[in-house]
Measured scan of single mutants.
Amino acid sequence: SEEELEEFAKEVLRRGITIIVNGIRITEVEIFVKVLREILEKR
Rank of each mutant, 00 (worst) to 15 (best):
S1L: 14
S1C: 13
S1H: 09
E2T: 11
E2Q: 13
E3G: 11
E3P: 07
E3H: 12
E4C: 14
E4M: 11
E4L: 13
E4S: 11
L5G: 02
L5P: 01
E6K: 12
E6W: 15
F8R: 03
F8G: 01
A9G: 02
K10E: 04
K10A: 08
K10P: 02
K10Y: 08
E11L: 10
E11N: 10
E11I: 10
E11C: 15
V12C: 07
V12P: 00
V12I: 12
V12S: 02
V12E: 00
L13Q: 00
L13E: 00
L13G: 00
L13P: 00
L13W: 08
R15E: 02
G16T: 04
G16R: 07
G16W: 15
T18A: 12
T18R: 13
T18Y: 13
I19F: 07
I19K: 00
I19P: 02
I20G: 01
I20H: 06
I20Q: 04
V21M: 10
V21C: 11
V21F: 14
N22C: 11
N22K: 07
N22D: 07
N22A: 06
G23H: 05
G23Y: 14
G23M: 11
I24K: 07
I24A: 04
R25I: 10
R25F: 06
R25Y: 09
I26D: 03
I26N: 04
I26P: 04
I26V: 07
T27I: 06
T27P: 05
E28R: 08
V29S: 06
V29Y: 10
V29P: 06
E30I: 10
I31W: 11
I31E: 14
I31P: 05
I31V: 11
I31K: 09
F32L: 15
F32A: 03
F32P: 00
F32W: 03
F32Y: 05
F32S: 00
V33H: 01
K34N: 06
K34I: 07
K34F: 11
K34C: 15
V35R: 05
V35L: 13
L36V: 03
L36K: 01
L36D: 01
R37C: 04
E38T: 10
I39N: 01
I39F: 14
I39A: 05
I39K: 02
I39R: 05
L40P: 02
L40D: 00
L40S: 02
E41R: 14
E41D: 10
K42P: 04
K42I: 10
K42V: 06
K42T: 09
R43E: 05
R43K: 10
R43F: 14
